[in-house]
Design a protein around this nucleic acid. Sequence first.
DNA 1: GCGTCCAGGTCTACC
DNA 2: GGTAGACCTGGACGC
Length: 298
Amino acid sequence: MEITIKTPRDFNFRRTVLSHGWCALQPFEFDEKTWTLIRVLDPGQGAPVTVEISSSARAININTSRRVGKKAAAKIERDVRHMFRLDDDLREFYQTVTGDPDFAWVAHEGAGRLLRSPTVFEDLVKMICTTNCSWALTEKMVSGLVHELGRESADGRRSFPSAAAMAERPASFFRDRIRSGYRAPYFAELAQRVASGSLNVEAWLTSELPLNELIKEMKSVKGVGNYAAENLLKLIGRYDGLALDSWTRAQFARLHNKGRVASDKKISRFYSRFNSWRGLALWCDLTRDWVNSENIGE
DNA sequence: GCGTCCAGGTCTACC
DNA sequence: GGTAGACCTGGACGC
């Protein structure tokens, strides 16, 4: 079964898929030969569905692993729109960067839409998995969660586990089976809070809290510090924070400081001209070469 | 084979 | 409020 979604004029499928590392973290799978993003989605009723997502002229095409009803199809479309940020309005951002010769390419290529998961919960858990470890360990922890606790689609692939599924497991499970180390009690506590309803992380998407209060709420989740909170903010559409980490600092040094370590203040000054869009400007700048000139187009 | 370092940080105790 | 030290894992590296 195929579902087609029209895309905005300034949308770039390839830039969005490769906007950051999420496309390599399960349940996402990226087929670079066919430029197809594959993952399991929970349609809300019945078994999970595997979707293969590709693009054509001004459209995203979704192939589902089985036929689904109207409600499920609508849920899948909502999830894909959410993941690819199709409803994000980046016109102000593009106007801002177009005035700068070194950043005009961002608008020209339609960069700036950061791929996200269908739920804030999934993004939050994954973000904690990226902290203080190698990318290989991040992949190991995330795939462990999917394989141990995800629901199975007909083709054997699995969804990302729900908070309820994770809440059924003790901290020892996350330590011994997921190999998440000191993060294990954090996952157990987070899943309990979300599953019980005492913490509604999905509400962050539409929160009208001032930035500082929203960050404070995010940091009430153990394992979430400045880096994780600022990256989560980017995924809910707020780009004030730079989310500096060892990789972004090294990349900035390479691109803008002749290979020498730059202070965080210097990095902050460099992007300050982009005001509330500075976090997104930084990310686009440092990841520009992730998509080369040969595969920018659709 | 073994020890050390460190990676897309965070938490806590202490000052 | 600022900071030092501890915290898990696993791969890379030097010996």
